[in-house]
Design a protein around this nucleic acid. Structure first.
Length: 268
DNA sequence: CTGGGGACGGGGCCC
DNA sequence: CGGGCCCCGTCCCCA
């Protein structure tokens, strides 16, 4: 039963691109582009005036881009979707804070603007719920950060191994896994290959006879820490693994499995 | 058959 | 992001 925390879980088994989501992004891009030209036509095009916040603040967009909690876009606006520099940068800020909803002081203004953007009347701004995991946040920014860090990442990112069928949620985890296929660490003595340097080190001890892990209860020594740990169980009165049927305890899970397979469980 | 040792795999955590 | 180390676990072998 190998642990596989990093193995990607197929939340909705989507390796395919989300075309509907892309369409929504494109739709908002068109709206923003259209608004941008409307503003240019209305106020002219002196470049020094373009970033005027009273014109280009998100509040200026609120009559058009009001997002209710039920119609929020599933993914954050990409930076290239924002046609103006005055748009709140926190929308695409993945580097600050976690998804717990606690906000940094520097983003308070953005939060207020987002609250206006979301609901100018100030009514029902406490509830921003993730459609995937139902977690709620008091601000839209909090919801965005949550989705960027967790749910969207889980749903979108998929790093597949080219040697087998495994998928991982992070590139680092995938790279680490690929080493189990490429086996870059080779023993100079016998030529055996390993995925990681410390595995090779442990193997070299089988050649040198080095046993750096000593038992404090007897004079035995081991080349592998895990083997020492298993050995320590033999000194313990309380064995770690217990049979549910006969309450007999074992020092190793493999011994418990053997015991169960030998018929203890079926005998009861 | 059982208990224990040897060797090793793989993911997580920390720096 | 990568390396080193830790922890948990498995498989095989032998007394």
């Amino acid at each position: 039963m190998p642990r596989s925390f990093l193995v990607k879980k197929h939340i909705n088994s989507t390796k395919k691109p989300n075309y509907s989501e892309n369409f929504v992004k494109f739709f908002f891009f068109l709206i923003h582009t259209f608004l941008f030209f409307i503003i240019i036509l209305k106020y002219g095009l002196p470049l020094s005036v373009i970033p005027q916040p009273e014109i280009l603040s998100p509040a200026a967009y609120s009559p058009i881009t009001v997002w209710t909690t039920s119609s929020l876009p599933l993914s954050p606006l990409p930076s290239d979707l924002s046609p103006i520099s005055g748009y709140p940068s926190s929308l695409s800020d993945t580097s600050s804070k976690d998804h717990s909803g606690s906000e940094s002081p520097r983003s308070d203004e953005d939060e207020q603007m987002l609250a206006k953007l979301t609901d100018p009347s100030g009514v029902d701004v406490e509830k921003f719920q993730c459609a995937l995991c139902s977690k709620s946040y008091s601000t839209y920014s909090g919801l965005l950060k949550h989705k960027q860090l967790h749910c969207d990442a889980q749903a979108r990112k998929s790093f597949s191994c080219k040697y087998c069928e495994k998928e991982y949620v992070s590139l680092g985890a995938l790279k680490m896994h690929i080493r189990t296929h490429t086996l870059p660490c080779v023993c100079k003595i016998c030529g055996k290959a390993f995925s990681r340097p410390w595995l090779l080190q442990g193997h070299i001890r089988t050649h040198t006879g080095e046993k750096p892990f000593s038992c404090p209860h007897c004079n035995r020594a081991f080349a592998d820490r895990s083997n020492l740990r298993a050995h320590l169980q033999t000194h313990s009165d309380v064995k770690k693994y217990q049979c549910k049927n006969c309450s007999k305890t074992f020092s190793r899970m493999s011994l418990l499995h053997k015991h169960e397979e030998s018929g203890c469980c079926t005998a009861h």
